[in-house]
Design a protein around this nucleic acid. Structure first.
Lengths: 105, 105
DNA sequence: TCAATATATGAATATATGAGAAAATACTCA
DNA sequence: TGAGTATTTTCTCATATATTCATATATTGA
């Protein structure tokens, strides 16, 4: 199995390392397919959303498919959600640890 | 099960979103415990390494434990490596997709 | 072709991050 | 306590990123 460079992995993670981009992926998970739907839902400027979308596409996380004037985005690899879930799980456990440490002094 | 905020998840991912921090975690995985060993191994400035270590500690990924002059760092939650592995896997699959697309035209 | 809608981009600004150098701090041991 | 080592902090510069506004581009259908 080839080793994936730290640079490429960091680049993927970096694509996810912004609250708005996590929100965008969740919006898509919940059924939205085009940024014309996502922008009002997330209350983001269209231009700003467009730039975040570009990043997600560039890094291979989303695949754009034009349908008339709109562009539908689909998840390139559904396992990206496993990664996001895992991040949530790690945050949760970390919070628990912090609480335990506080109690222990 | 409580929902973990996009912000916190992005913050965790952001901690991993730098090649050097991925390298640091790999160095620790491979057995290094203190930054005095990691700095020369990764050929990083000590002060620079220190700041990256701080980020990893702040975000709950590493736990520092002083042992005399040195500070040993241990992984707070080994599942962080699952997340890193998954990132590698996603990058790998993405690369394969790109190649297939090229071939398909 | 023109209007309407969706998306992309250039420019400007604010903020964040990364890095190195030097100084400060913390610890151990003689 | 003083020397030596490990680590952190502070300062500063350069670069990267995020955001908004205004404008440009692309697509469809009348």
């Amino acid at each position: 199995m080839p080793v994936i460079s730290t640079k490429l992995r960091a680049r993927l993670l970096d694509a996810l390392a912004h609250p708005n981009r996590v929100r965008i992926l969740e919006a898509i998970k919940s059924g939205y397919t085009c940024s014309c739907e996502i922008a009002p839902d997330l209350n983001m400027e269209q231009s700003n959303l467009s730039r975040h979308m570009k990043i997600l596409v560039e890094r291979g996380i989303l695949i754009p498919e034009r349908e008339g004037v709109r562009i539908n985005y689909r998840i390139a690899d559904e396992d990206i959600f496993k990664l996001l879930d895992m991040a949530g799980e790690l945050v949760r456990r970390n919070a628990e640890r912090s609480i335990l440490e506080e109690e222990a002094g």
